[in-house]
C-alpha cells in the first residue's frame, strides 16, 4: 500500500489529462461564442498534492508535473516545453508558499486562483513570444483569462471535495504510519 500511493496519484493525473481533451471536444454552447475555456485539471490536482500530501523533503508533485505536462505538450500542442515550464514553475512557487502557510480550505482555494491565473498568463506570454497567437492583452484577459479562471475554480472545488481528505490520509499512510 505504502509504495502504491505515488502510482495511484500518477494514474489520477493521467485520467485528468485525458478528461481535459475529452471535455474540450464537447461543444459548450451555454457560453458566449468567442470565449476560450481551457481546463487545467491535472495542474489543479497537483496543487492539492503539494498542499496536502507533500513533505518538505519530497518532490512528488514537481516530478509528476514534469512527466504529465510533457504528455500535455506532446498530445495537445505542437510546441514541447511551454506547459512543462509553466506548470512546474508555478507548482514550485506554491511549494515555497506552503512552507509558511497552513493547509486549509481557504488557502487551497487562494492557491488555486493564484496558480491558474499565473500559469495561464505565463502560457499567454510564452506562446506570444514564439508567435503561436497574436492576440492583444485586452482580448486575452476578457475572453480567456476570466472564463478559464472561473471554470477552473469550479473544477478545482470538485477536485478538492473529492481528493483533499484522501490526500491527507495517503500522506499519513505514506510518511508517518509505520507498518
Amino acid at each position: 500500500m505504502k509504495n502504491m500511493i505515488p502510482f495511484l496519484i500518477a494514474i489520477i493525473c493521467f485520467i485528468l489529462v485525458i478528461l481535459e481533451g475529452t471535455l474540450s471536444l464537447i461543444n459548450v454552447s451555454l457560453f458566449a461564442d468567442d470565449w476560450m475555456i481551457v481546463s487545467h485539471f491535472m495542474f489543479l490536482f497537483l496543487i492539492y498534492v503539494t498542499i496536502y500530501f507533500e513533505k518538505i523533503t519530497t518532490f512528488y508533485a514537481i516530478a509528476l508535473s514534469i512527466i504529465f505536462s510533457l504528455i500535455v505538450d506532446i498530445v495537445y500542442t505542437d510546441v514541447i516545453g511551454v506547459y512543462v515550464f509553466a506548470y512546474t514553475l508555478v507548482l514550485y512557487i506554491i511549494r515555497v508558499f506552503m512552507k509558511v502557510l497552513q493547509s486549509n480550505f481557504l488557502i487551497a482555494m487562494l492557491m488555486t486562483v493564484f496558480g491558474v491565473i499565473t500559469t495561464d498568463i505565463l502560457i499567454f506570454f510564452l506562446y506570444n513570444i514564439i508567435q503561436i497567437h497574436q492576440l492583444s492583452w485586452e482580448f486575452y484577459w476578457h475572453n480567456r483569462l476570466i472564463p478559464s479562471g472561473v471554470w477552473n475554480l469550479i473544477a478545482g472545488l470538485f477536485i478538492y471535495i473529492a481528493f483533499a481528505k484522501r490526500l491527507q490520509k495517503w500522506s499519513f499512510i505514506k510518511f508517518e504510519r509505520s507498518d
Partner: peptide, 15 residues
C-alpha cells in the same frame, strides 16, 4: 472518429 480536441484553444487540432 474524433477522440479528442486540443485542450489549449490556440491550437486548432483534433485527434
Amino acid at each position: 472518429s474524433v477522440i479528442a480536441k486540443s485542450k489549449d484553444q490556440w491550437f486548432k487540432q483534433i485527434t
